[in-house]
Design a protein around this nucleic acid. Structure first.
Lengths: 222, 222
DNA sequence: TGTACATCAGTGAACGCGCGTTCACTGATGTAC
DNA sequence: TGTACATCAGTGAACGCGCGTTCACTGATGTAC
């Protein structure tokens, strides 16, 4: 077995198992035996299970961040100071996300991992992601702000999270939903089908009319 | 300690801890010591940890199902055969959800639990929920179908799940998001605020234009 | 009214198990002199 | 060219720990006769 082939085997196996069952439900014994690697190898190479989890994320998020920054550089060059339209921003983000897993395991695994990062308690992971990848997200939201000047800041913040919820929830629960869809509508959906379906929904969600005023004297939407 | 006070104490404590940390991350020892109850009491009253988890859900979903069925009965009576508008259906569902936790711990806990049910592997739980509460969901989606005749069935299926994703994701991750919103926008949001903000977004998402055709010869949206 | 038995909520201690981690060790490869 | 030492990936076995569950038991209450 070559040099640090072991490290790759561990990461390849771990990301699939984590995506399938979650972090707490995946033991190092399961990972190492599936990867045909010694149990102690995880602690030898990564130091701890926590660090392994972070390494699994880094292997997706590092290339994504690079690509996304490059893509945004390109856009800012093209639009030189002009406002970049919302659809273009969303499209660019989607393309950057879709490009990454061409080399890696699959988009599905990537999305499942993101879903887990949000939903499983794992405070250390949320902190790690915020610390290492927060800046690219901030850059993106700044551009979205310029593209949607009519939205109050707080409203935009919430809507971005609404949309994030839709995307992560759908793509990370893809398998279960796909089974139902296949049985009921005899339609086999791919991730790219879903992205196509998501596009108009996401745009509509971000551009929906503002909510009624919070007080009891309800206004009719103008 | 009165009769089956113990059962209630266990459920009250368990639902909060499950919502905070997830199922695998919450041990029976933590639950029983916080509830000031003997460790063996969970297995005595519920049989197993799995059954405890299901009992926690039943205590929210049973009253919800009753209320929601009643509310839909009322609507069908009022509209006597006529199509019930989409906004009314959504409003009715929202109201039924909001009414339940008035008696129970909180809406936040309820939503966190639903988020966990989706995201944590826990196959037994998904099966339990489908088996016990699938029919009320089917009834609701049938009414939504009548209210949105222009949507192809598969498209409606996916959009309902997109929207479900938004709602569960947002409300179950509420605490973290609230902290950020409070810091950045000096705005304290309640669950009811969020429901108000969600309303136009959900309607817009369901009524968004249909996606482009799946083939490569892309059509311009009409 | 009194005794024997059944029922049932609750208990304290132990069980076996799988977990993440540690540790002393091996064996191959590279480096210094 | 040959020897001694350092480095480093990898290993096998064990460590202690916390877990869900089990079990024999208690003590209060109800029921039958």
């Amino acid at each position: 077995m070559a040099q640090t082939d072991t490290v790759t085997r561990i990461l390849d196996t771990a990301e699939v198992l984590f995506a399938e069952r979650g972090f707490a439900e995946t033991s190092l014994r399961t990972i190492t035996s599936k990867a045909k690697v010694n149990l102690a190898a995880v602690n030898y190479h990564f130091g701890s299970k926590k660090s392994l989890i972070q390494a699994v994320f880094a292997r997706y998020l590092d290339p994504f961040t690079v690509r996304f920054h490059e893509a945004l550089d390109g856009l800012e060059r093209d639009y030189k100071g002009q406002t970049i339209p919302l659809e273009v921003l969303l499209e660019t983000m989607a393309r950057s996300v879709l490009e990454v897993p061409a080399e890696r395991n699959s988009l599905k695994v990537f999305m499942k991992l993101l879903g887990l990062a949000y939903s499983q308690a794992q405070g250390h992971l949320r902190r790690y992601i915020q610390e290492h990848y927060g800046s690219v997200f901030t850059r993106f939201t700044d551009l979205v702000r310029q593209a949607t000047p009519e939205l109050p800041d707080a409203e935009r913040f919430w809507r971005l999270h609404f949309v994030l919820g839709t995307v992560i929830f759908t793509l990370s629960g893809l398998d279960a939903l796909r089974d139902i869809a296949e049985k009921d509508y005899h339609e086999h959906v791919t991730v790219r089908d879903l992205v196509r379906r998501l596009r108009p929904v996401v745009v509509a969600a971000l551009q929906a009319p503002l909510p009624e005023e919070p007080n009891d004297s309800v206004q009719v939407a103008g």
